[in-house]
């Protein structure tokens, strides 16, 4: 995995903010910070699998914080990423009801000043549930929903890319897929309750 030599924090924050070609800043964050986060988690009762999950979640939170203008320009990307990772890991250990392990974890005050908000953590938990529901959809549904809602492609572009016969066919398919997902979310009482809470935080 290659990262340009002249690519730095400033450029990564700029690209994430612009939300164009996120692969580049994500590769940069992996190259710069993954090993450090992994070492921290391994030292604090975690496994390499935990480190992989926590780092992915950390990047989700970091990228969304930057895009949502919640990233403070006065903190370095490194300290931000590490603080998020540490807090996510502590939350995970709490979730595992591992109080004794929690007590051994090293955190300093500076780390605790930068942390994902409760809102972000709840959203993160909700996200995992939604991700599970999304993955249960068919391949065509997953593609069409991501092309439309993540890649912001138009109906015409999706029609051409996925070889649909007309834009209306794409529109109908997208509706069916979205409805299936929404019905699944609705049928999960905890998730649905969180949906309301999450929207109330807005």
């Amino acid at each position: 995995m290659t990262v340009d030599k002249d690519y730095d924090d400033e450029k990564a924050i700029r690209d994430i903010g612009l939300n164009v070609d996120l692969q580049k800043p994500i590769r940069y964050l992996y190259a710069c910070h993954y090993n450090g986060v992994e070492r921290y988690i391994l030292r604090n009762s975690g496994s390499t699998f935990d480190a992989e999950d926590i780092f992915q979640e950390t990047l989700m939170v970091t990228i969304k914080a930057i895009q949502g203008s919640r990233f403070r320009a006065d903190s370095s990307l490194k300290s931000y990423v590490f603080a998020i990772a540490k807090n996510l890991w502590i939350s995970e250990l709490r979730r595992r009801k591992s109080a004794s392990k929690r007590a051994e974890i090293y955190t300093d005050e500076q780390d605790m000043q930068i942390k994902p908000t409760t809102n972000e953590l709840i959203r993160n938990e909700d996200f995992k549930l939604v991700l599970g529901l999304f993955e249960s959809l068919g391949g065509k549904c997953k593609r069409i929903l991501l092309l439309f809602y993540y890649q912001d492609m138009s109906m015409k572009e999706i029609m051409e890319a996925e070889n649909y016969t007309s834009e209306q066919v794409v529109r109908n398919k997208k509706y069916k897929c979205l409805k299936t997902l929404i019905d699944q979310i609705k049928s999960d009482p905890i998730l649905y309750e969180n949906v309301k809470d999450a929207l109330n935080y807005e």
């Binding site: 995995m1 692969q23 992989e52 999304f134 993540y150």
Partner: peptide
């Protein structure tokens, strides 16, 4: 959430 799923997949592909 679908935007997050897309972001997750992008992070996952780099991962």
């Amino acid at each position: 959430q679908l935007k997050d799923v897309g972001l997750w997949r992008e992070i996952n592909s780099v991962h």
